[in-house]
Design a protein around this nucleic acid. Structure first.
Lengths: 339, 339
DNA sequence: CTGAAAGCGCTAACAA
DNA sequence: TTGTTAGCGCTTTCAG
């Protein structure tokens, strides 16, 4: 006697409930046209048999799988991990499973990953782009939503207003009295870097227009720790008189790198040097001193991106995608100057 | 004229190549029994038409999807993120897409996620368990591999030899001359905690058997930063004479918390206090001072777990899943004692 | 309102 | 060696 555990199908349910498969299917689809008595019988049979719909069959039939693709540069980047977490949460609210794929900041790989997921006829794909240009052709029937990093010549996509976010950092250091400031920018030529840099630079320049002592130096590099360290080393090594009293970074990682280097050099944060980051990764609130930073509205972005897959853009006004200044202990009033 | 872009199917290819669908299918399956000329014709047609196999149809037919489930507590945990990254890498080498699902350390949610993925007839599921007990019933035809955290009464599963890993920490602090040591353990009653604690305790006790000045205190809590802070505060607050000269933690997070607290209290690491972590999350190499820690063989574990899905356990001997001591700058010789 | 039946695209068993 | 065909489980016309 083979103990073969046959999968219970819609037919088994139909037989058990003494109805046709069509009726069962309609019950499953919550089709209102099924009369009470049958509906009840069917639901009982479903429970009795422990019926589970076969997702592959559905996907085949519908030519669409209840799956959301998520392509990002690197899941070990804490900011992306947080985005991924929120996206998964929102996706599961909509009954979507999430397929994770990494591009490792390589546009070619990104394109491959997108196409590989496309082969699974997903409900949609969310992409954190590796580059400023779109590297995959837009498919007909699958929405591809870009998130976090703006794409050139693309009006849709979900991202925070990073330009005005960065201007918040300018307000903050200005109010604290800093006039000798170094800004660490991200990779030149990328839109994100440009946006953040512009937001900061324009505002601080505006604010300090009438202050002759105002100095702003801009250095750039990657968004990583090393860049923060490097720049801090360069700008802090000189005569302490000329040293900047604030470093504003385009990423938390850079800021943390700068923090670390400052400590190594013996420059005390925040009394001698204020440091501001960008993103508010969870690490920002763990290091000592805790990092003042610009928080991106990760959850709102995630929610919006997933909803956009369903064209649920309607209620987007409700979602606040503006950045917020989070003041912690890495910033303080500028040391009294001896001008 | 409807511009309907019909999906190109195996039938279209067959027609184009003037063969039967069976032949095309055989070519796709790399079945050797197809003769050269046909094989070439078919491949040309495939290219010419831009044919892509329909994965849903395959999944339905085979009752198995080329998908790997990955259920873990929280992707924002850097250690899990690194595991996830390596798992995805290895999975894609085997042609598997990865479905990511989070349990948030809730066994109930974990069970739900596992079952939800099971509904998709995956090739396998890899689980980083939230608890010591298995919370889902083992399905017949889908391998479920647990990884990282040992499960009670389960012999399979992939994890590093954490007990001997922890003993490495004992060797290290012993050699540095520390005799007054605090060990920060993980949650009591969990296997991981127990393993690591036992590994450390047994070895250090053994090494110091003949040393009357030897003192070991064990405190426990969660694996998080706060616990590290708390314990450090408790054990460092007393008379500096009695203070431990080394803190060994069951996780990097604890170690980092302790590091931070030590700094706040004014205890210098490593000259006055050595600190050792466990895991080697990337943060360990970023903080100041860089953390001496026990590195888990993340890549090897990931590779092994994925291979086990295919029963490729054969060549596992090749994979080194032992932990390694990574000496950085959070440990130093014990301050000369005044015995 | 419900049942019967076609067919989504693919693979594999069976025929030729 | 290649072709023909049944059917995986489901949804959705189309009849009744």
């Amino acid at each position: 006697m083979a103990e073969r555990k046959k999968n219970v199908t819609i037919r088994d349910v139909a037989k058990h409930a003494k109805v046709s498969v069509g009726t069962v299917s309609r019950v499953l689809a919550k089709n209102e046209t099924v009369k009470q008595p049958l509906l009840i019988r069917v639901n009982q049979s479903i429970k009795a048999l422990g019926y589970k719909p076969n997702l592959a069959a559905r996907a085949l039939r519908a030519n669409k799988d209840q799956v959301l693709g998520l392509v990002l540069p690197d899941i070990t980047n804490p900011f992306f991990a947080q985005l991924a977490k929120e996206i998964e949460l929102e996706a599961s609210r909509h009954g979507l499973a999430v397929i994770l794929a990494s591009s490792f900041d390589d546009p070619k790989k990104e394109a491959r990953q997108v196409h590989a997921i496309l082969d699974r006829s997903p409900t949609g794909i969310i992409v954190i782009p590796a580059a400023d240009e779109r590297v995959f052709k837009k498919p007909d029937h699958v929405p591809i939503i870009t998130i976090d990093r703006p794409i050139k010549s693309e009006s849709d996509g979900v991202f925070a207003d990073q330009e005005s976010g960065a201007s918040l950092a300018a307000d903050h250091v200005f109010e604290l009295g800093h006039r000798n400031i170094v800004y660490i920018s991200g990779p030149e030529g990328t839109l994100v870097s440009e946006l953040r840099q512009r937001g900061f630079k324009n505002r601080i320049t505006e604010l300090c227009r009438d202050d002759p002592s105002f100095r702003l130096e801009i250095r750039s590099g990657l968004f990583d720790y090393e860049t923060g360290e490097r720049v801090a080393r360069e700008v802090l090594s000189g005569d302490s008189k000329d040293r900047p009293t604030a470093i504003v970074a385009a990423s938390d990682q850079q800021a943390i790198g700068a923090l670390r280097e400052a400590r190594d050099i013996g420059v005390t944060v925040p009394s001698e040097l204020s440091i501001v980051g960008f993103d508010d990764i969870s690490l920002a609130n763990i290091i000592v001193p805790r990092l003042t930073t610009i928080r991106q509205p990760i959850e709102a972005m995630a929610t919006m991106a997933v909803r956009r897959v369903f064209d649920l853009a309607l209620d987007e006004q409700e979602l606040d995608v503006s950045c917020k200044l989070i003041v912690r202990t890495s910033t303080a009033p500028a040391p009294s100057s001896n001008t």
